[in-house]
């Protein structure tokens, strides 16, 4: 008995020594286990739940596609999904356009204290998301910062009512809230560019605008693409911003999912909407990446 346990422990030891990578897997295993228990398995359950419907009595369930059919029959749901994709696309573009020059400045024109600039620009991102979004509500509101300020300065007589509770307010707020996700990847890709390439373009007689368009911009594209995706993907599912500043016209798919789990108390429907929006986002991202590849091939 004793000798057999000795033998197994011995072989375990030699296995350990022969394949050091096993130690690596052992070290990473708590984190991997967490991802399986708290990420992969909940997503499988989410997918499973989306095929359920209640059958009269409260604990009986039936498998069907009814929730998916329900979603596609309601134009309100489909429209909200389309609007979410539209809003997030605009948000990603606006955020990247606003962030690019700032990232460019830090990468190429700041030579000392780069760290200070980077910390300054990313610091707000760590503060409470809820509070940042909420302060936009205060800024854009009917009696808010902008309206009361303009009235105080006698520039307007009536508060402007078109600045809050619409799609524009959602786009502005999200472009602010996700700025760091755009700046950092763009900065990294600009910082990696070999400066001698840009100098070579200058020496070959390209002017500054051409050398930017033909050298710097294409070389920074990986950062731009990463930034677009990092902003687009999570904002499609945002709940707080449309709820606080969107009004009825600025509702997004996240609000529908939440109401299925809250007011409607129809979890399977909420699960189905989540699955539909994740598939739509994945599909949109694939299309975008294919498009980028095609453009790149045409250019090269």
């Amino acid at each position: 008995m004793k000798s057999s346990t000795d033998k197994t422990s011995l072989s375990a030891m030699s296995l350990w020594r022969r394949y050091p990578a096993l130690k690596g897997y052992a070290l990473a295993s708590p984190a991997i286990l967490l991802m399986i228990v708290a990420l992969v398995s909940p997503f499988l359950l989410l997918a499973g739940t989306s095929f359920k419907i209640e059958t009269g009595s409260s604990d009986e369930w039936m498998l069907s596609l009814a929730n998916y059919e329900f979603f596609f029959e309601k134009s309100h749901y489909v429209n909200t999904l389309v609007r979410s994709i539209f809003i997030s696309t605009l948000v990603a573009l606006v955020t990247v356009l606003l962030a690019y020059p700032a990232a460019y400045f830090i990468a190429f024109h700041v030579h000392e204290n780069k760290m200070l600039w980077l910390i300054m620009i990313t610091l707000p991102f760590w503060t409470s998301y809820l509070l940042r979004v909420f302060s936009w509500k205060l800024i854009l509101g009917y009696n808010g910062f902008i309206n009361s300020g303009l009235m105080w300065l006698d520039l307007i007589k009536q508060p402007l009512d078109f600045i809050l509770y619409n799609t524009n307010a959602v786009i502005l707020t999200l472009a602010h809230a996700w700025a760091a996700f755009a700046i950092l990847p763009i900065y990294v890709s600009l910082q990696k560019i070999d400066k001698s390439l840009i100098e070579a373009a200058h020496d070959l007689g390209e002017n500054k605008i051409y050398s930017f368009l033909r050298v710097t911009l294409p070389l920074s594209m990986p950062g731009v693409v990463a930034a677009l995706l990092l902003v687009f993907i999570p904002t499609v599912g945002d709940y707080v911003t449309p709820k606080l500043v969107g009004g009825p016209k600025g509702l997004m798919i996240g609000n529908l999912i939440q109401s299925a789990f809250g007011r409607l108390d129809n979890w399977p429907l909420g699960a189905a909407i989540s699955i539909i929006s994740m598939i739509t986002v994945t599909f949109a991202v694939c299309l975008f990446l294919l498009g980028i590849n095609r453009v790149r091939k045409v250019l090269i």
Binding site: A38, L46, L229, I233, P234, G254, I257, A271, S277
Partner: peptide, 15 residues
């Protein structure tokens, strides 16, 4: 990090 927290939240809620 790239999944909307809302969807992480409901997936965990269901679990």
């Amino acid at each position: 990090l790239v999944t909307p927290f809302l969807i992480l939240g409901i997936a965990l809620l269901i679990s």
